[in-house]
């Protein structure tokens, strides 16, 4: 297995120090674009729908209101047909430097969601932007236990949303690569 670059995973190493037992991870990537461009790709739901998820995933539902207390909702469909739904709330917006949100993440698909705090930092140097994602699991909420019962109806709703999107015109959201 290839060792991930620029990645720090806290949990799971031999717990030789308290620091090595922290949960969550930090992921750092460089993108050769100004941070305003990167900011837009992450906070504009039409652009988010194009790249969110692993290879082959499409996002028939991708909603994001990038303001404090704004809602986020993405239903991502994998090539095998499984759905990975997330819902969340925006916590902090400091455009184009910092974007903080909490997601209820049902991962792997089908499990009771966890609340995970996501902090994205954008640092630009000479036209290249370093993006740092810090993901910190919080804990299961009572609401997330109720959520599991409604997971399947949610997918029916996704299809309706997809139909709405397609009817609305050839926006970027429907260009998500297969």
């Amino acid at each position: 297995m290839v060792e991930p670059r620029n990645t720090e995973i806290h949990a799971g190493r031999r717990p030789s120090s308290p620091e090595s037992l922290k949960t969550g991870f930090v992921l750092t990537r460089e993108f050769r674009v100004p941070r305003q461009v990167l900011w837009s790709a992450l906070t504009d739901p039409r652009k988010l729908a194009i790249w969110w998820g692993p290879r082959g995933a499409t996002n028939p539902v991708c909603e994001l209101d990038p303001r404090v207390h704004g809602a986020l909702r993405i239903h991502s469909q994998n090539p095998d047909g499984s759905i990975f739904p997330v819902t969340g709330t925006v916590r902090e917006v400091d455009a184009p430097r910092k974007f903080v949100f909490v997601l209820s993440v049902a991962f792997p698909p089908g499990v009771v969601p966890f609340e995970v705090l996501h902090t994205l930092r954008f640092d630009e140097h000479g036209g290249t932007t370093t993006l740092t994602l810090e993901a910190q699991p919080l804990q299961t909420t009572p609401a997330s236990l109720e959520w599991i019962a409604g997971a399947d109806p949610g997918w029916g709703e996704s299809l309706e949303r997809l139909a709405e999107l397609v009817q609305a015109g050839p926006g970027e959201a429907v260009r998500a690569r297969a």
């Binding site: 995973i9 992921l27 790249w51 998820g53 692993p54 290879r55 690569r177």
Partner: peptide
């Protein structure tokens, strides 16, 4: 979950 984001960033 890290891999999910890593692959997303590839696509981004």
């Amino acid at each position: 979950y890290r891999q999910f984001w890593d692959e997303s960033f590839d696509r981004l």
